[in-house]
Amino acid sequence: MKRILVVGEDALCCALGEQLVLAALPGWAVAGQPIDTKGVTKLIPALPRYAEQARFVQPVLCIADTDGHCVKEWLHRNSPANGHQNLLIRLAVTEAESWLLADQEGLAHGLQVEKRRLPRAPDDVLDAKGALLQLLTKSKLRYIRDEAVSPTDRTRQGPGYNLHLSNFVRAFWNAERARESSPSLARAFKNLQKLGDGNA
């Protein structure tokens, strides 16, 4: 079985990367647990190392947020000089949370939020994380309301944010459904498939 390493700038990106691989690359496996670099500032300097890994050992999928920056500009500035076709850097526009919002059905079911409140075009939402947090405060699940959102400031993430959302991604989130409404996810999906074809 072919293997691909998933690297994410946070736990949520890692979980999304895993699900993307499962959906876009049938017959492939994620190499061990994804690497959570704990912040984009640690991911960028590590990119040359992952490029080396991609060149010599196995394909690598890196997932990060654009955080409002232009994708092209970001890639131009941060792509490693030793880049390789097997190193796939995908950026969620504007944040990983936009990809989460893109699966409306999964979100409504898994996190028990109202479907009609979900944005139609999540890539165009400027503050996807804020929008998601606002939805989570209205979740029917008590542990989501209490732990995923900060109890003191309802616009910030709570201590259980990464844990609960990563588990949601693994259990309910569907990449096939989500790519219908998020163009940046659809592109990531397509490129991942292309990488799979290239390594066939």
Partner: peptide
Amino acid sequence: LEQIQHGLT
């Protein structure tokens, strides 16, 4: 070992 040799810690 191969992974460690090529970039990963």
